[in-house]
């Protein structure tokens, strides 16, 4: 398999695994969301990922195009802020990935584009208790890996930064999103968006291990 076929296989596998893992944690994500929000984060993510999987099922395009369409389908099916943001993350990353090489340097650039789009749209900064608190440390850690490091190894090395970032949201007070209206009440609970992002990144690790390990 050439690089672009591997990329296509990884994206497809990742979408399927992401749906599996988020479905398995749907209740947990709902509970985290209910602490200071409306408790639908798990259901919203499942709905979005189902639509994303359905959208790419019959496509025969490259990995970038798949991500763009998966992002659009995710946003439309999920709605809400998280739907718009995660969809934009996928689509922005897909536009960079396009049909270029599938390596650590490209994946980093793709995720950097996704991160900056999420921050621009959501107007969230690190420390605001959003998915940015898991995504940004991950992207920074990925960027710090040697560019010639195989993607799977680089991804694995960067994952703990995302986990630490998500865990740290427990000590934060929400500043963006609906939970921000509750200020201190969000303290003590991890941000559901940051938590689900870690699951998505872990699903990608598995997909990479299966398809290029």
């Amino acid at each position: 398999m050439g690089s672009s076929e591997i990329a296509v296989a990884v994206v497809r596998r990742w979408l399927a695994l992401a749906l599996e893992v988020i479905t398995a944690h749907e209740e947990e994500l709902g509970r985290l969301d209910a602490a200071a929000g409306d408790g639908d984060h798990g259901a919203t993510m499942v709905r979005g990922l189902r639509a994303a999987n359905a959208a790419v099922e019959k496509m025969s395009d490259g990995a970038g195009r798949l991500l763009i369409e998966a992002g659009a389908a995710f946003s439309d099916a999920s709605g809400g802020a998280s739907g718009a943001l995660i969809g934009a993350l996928l689509s922005s990353a897909g536009r960079v990935l396009d049909d270029g090489p599938f390596d650590t340097a490209t994946a980093t650039k793709a995720l950097q584009a996704g991160l900056s789009m999420v921050m621009r749209l959501g107007k969230a900064q690190p420390g605001d208790k959003t998915l940015v608190d898991a995504l940004k440390p991950f992207v920074d850690a990925l960027a710090a890996q040697p560019a010639d490091q195989p993607l799977l190894a680089a991804w694995r090395a960067a994952l703990p930064a995302a986990q630490a970032g998500a865990a740290a949201t427990r000590e934060m007070v929400a500043k963006r999103g609906r939970s921000a209206k509750l200020g201190e009440r969000s303290l003590g609970h991890a941000d559901p968006g940051a938590t689900s992002l870690v699951y998505l990144l872990q699903a990608m690790e598995t997909a990479l291990a299966e398809e290029c390990g």
Binding site: D40, T44, S75, G80, G83, A84
Partner: peptide, 12 residues
């Protein structure tokens, strides 16, 4: 009309 307690998507 969005889903229950979720904003409608930009597409809608």
């Amino acid at each position: 009309m969005g889903n229950v307690f979720a904003a409608p998507s930009a597409e809608q």
